[in-house]
């Protein structure tokens, strides 16, 4: 298989970036997309006149959330609900030109080439994305019953892998889906209820401070979310926010 990669290259955060084209022959449909980039990088090393392309990954099985490329105008490539590392070359045709860009959002500054800084998401979690329970203080696990429906609903939200595709794909670069998933995971469980009000205030405030945009409910994010997090979560988060702050104070 032969394809042309058009890849965003940028030395560092403040350097200007540009696309560069690489024609790559010898790929196979079974290769994962990231393996095709590995292949290209090995070619670059052997040719020796250019630095390797920086891109991110770790688990390569769709769970760590570290990979994330904008491929032909879509977060994580042409399919719905998968990560970049789960994309295979069989999704492309011989002779294709494939455009590869980093996530683009004000809150995700570029570090190098295709690598961005997503630490803003960590800081949102630091602002209440936890249950304040010290090690050693837990009651017997079955002492608090949690119905299957409730547990399943919490699990649906908890499945977020923190990749940032929702932000990258949103025209407002909003982190509402990410934040809502964390809030609803915890606040639906009995263990997370005592702090639910504080959590929604703190986390949404931090989300705004990080420079993410507002959510305008286009639903683009849920299409790209590898974990299939539904935008219903955002409505639920907003409802929680309104309940706590009072009507008319929905600051989106």
């Amino acid at each position: 298989m032969k394809v042309t990669f058009k890849i965003w290259r940028q030395e560092h955060a403040s350097a200007p970036g540009r696309f560069r084209e690489y024609e790559v022959d010898g790929l196979t449909p079974d290769m994962s997309f990231l393996e095709a980039l590995d292949f290209l990088n090995e070619l670059l090393v052997i040719r020796g006149n250019e630095k390797v392309i920086a891109f991110e990954y770790d688990c390569r099985e769709g769970i760590c959330g570290q990979c994330g490329l904008f491929i032909n105008g879509r977060a994580h490539g042409p399919h719905d609900q998968i990560t970049t590392c789960q994309l295979h070359m069989r999704s492309f045709s011989d002779g294709d030109t494939i455009v590869v860009e980093p996530w683009r959002a004000a809150a995700f500054p570029i570090i190098k080439d295709l690598v961005v800084d997503r630490s803003a998401l960590d800081r949102i979690v630091e602002h209440g994305g936890y249950i304040s329970a010290r090690t050693g203080t837990a009651p017997e696990a079955n002492a608090i019953l949690v119905g299957k429906e409730v547990a399943d609903k919490a699990m649906d939200a908890a499945a977020c892998i923190g990749c940032g595709a929702c932000v990258a794909t949103c025209k407002n670069a909003s982190a509402a889906l990410f934040t809502a998933a964390k809030i609803n995971h915890l606040s639906n469980l009995p263990q997370g209820k005592p702090e639910a009000d504080r959590r929604v205030l703190d986390m949404t405030r931090q989300m705004d401070l990080e420079g993410f945009g507002n959510c305008s409910f286009t639903g683009a994010c849920e299409v790209e979310c590898p974990a299939g997090i539904s935008i219903v979560n955002i409505a639920e988060m907003n409802a929680r926010g309104i309940r706590v702050m009072g009507p008319g104070t929905d600051k989106k």
Binding site: A133, A138, E140, L145, A151, M155, H185, L186, Q191
Partner: peptide, 19 residues
């Protein structure tokens, strides 16, 4: 298991609510 449940791990449950 008590500890993780308290921290919000959504372990699989029976309809009646037990683990």
């Amino acid at each position: 298991i008590d500890h993780f449940t308290q921290q919000g791990v959504p372990f699989a449950r029976e309809y009646g609510g037990v683990l």
